[in-house]
């Protein structure tokens, strides 16, 4: 498949450049909202909506926004869409609003959205940026749901609130608590590493190259340590 075709822009977010398991972006909501499948699904869809809209607008404005103040500009655009989604969810889905709590507002600082703005939307046309938003959003949602399935089935013995036989009588509450989230996330990344071995871009220093602040802190703390390690 041609690396730059529109189809590949759409599809690579699903596995090869999955934002959660390969690019390691947006770790906070991944860990926090995956205790239930419903929570994970709604978080994924909310983030996807913001991602598509912000990618489109940032790509439209990519020639207007001056380079020096681009990060604050992106943040304002993203925060605007997050507020819209927040108001929408609060009005029509109050239960989901309760469930997600502060994490809904925190989509603003979700690295996936700022990261895609910086890495993709600021350099590509509107159409491709929207496709990228859809692909990355789907990848994010799928990853969250996959993690939530493991955690909810093992931790509370149900799937999307429906109790399952056997599991509901043998719950391991460790999995819906904080340490369980990290454990499942670590194991999932290892599985994806194994599956995509040699194909996915291997990250030498995680949480930095993918971090949206990497552009701002090129002389920063984690960058220099990463360079040192490469040598």
């Amino acid at each position: 498949m041609n690396k730059n075709s529109n189809m590949s822009v759409l599809l690579r977010g699903l596995l090869l450049e999955n934002p959660v398991f390969v690019l390691i972006l947006g770790t906070c909501p991944t860990l926090a909202t995956t205790t239930t499948v419903i929570g994970a699904l709604s978080m994924g869809l909310a983030a996807m909506a913001v991602l598509i809209c912000s990618n489109a607008v940032i790509s439209l404005l990519r020639k207007v926004i001056p380079d020096g103040v681009r990060i604050p500009c992106y943040i304002v655009i993203i925060a605007g869409f997050v507020t819209m989604v927040q108001m929408f969810v609060q009005a029509f889905l109050p239960e989901i609003y309760e469930l997600l709590g502060v994490y809904l507002a925190l989509i603003t600082v979700n690295c996936i959205i700022l990261g895609r703005a910086e890495m993709f939307a600021s350099k590509n046309t509107v159409g491709r940026s929207v496709l990228d938003g859809i692909g990355m959003g789907l990848g994010f949602t799928l990853a969250l749901v996959a993690m939530a399935t493991v955690r909810e089935v093992l931790g509370s013995g149900s799937f999307a609130g429906i109790a399952l036989p056997f599991f509901s009588t043998h719950t391991i509450s460790f999995f819906i608590k904080a340490p369980g989230g990290m454990l499942v996330y670590g194991v999932m990344i290892a599985i994806v590493n194994k599956l995509t071995h040699g194909k996915a871009p291997r990250k030498k220093s995680f949480a930095c190259a993918g971090c949206p602040s990497a552009a701002m802190c090129s002389a920063g703390a984690c960058e220099t340590s990463a360079v040192k390690e490469d040598n």
């Binding site: 390691i24 608590k177 904080a178 340490p179 369980g180 989230g181 990290m182 454990l183 996330y185 670590g186 194991v187 990344i189 290892a190 599985i191 590493n193 194994k194 071995h197 990250k203 995680f206 949480a207």
Partner: peptide, 23 residues
């Protein structure tokens, strides 16, 4: 550590135990 656990996965698992300690 096993090849596919190198880097982030094993770090997360270690973080999981630190978090367990805080419980």
């Amino acid at each position: 550590v096993p090849e596919c656990f190198k880097g982030l996965p094993v770090t997360l698992i270690a973080a999981s135990f630190v978090s367990l300690a805080f419980f």
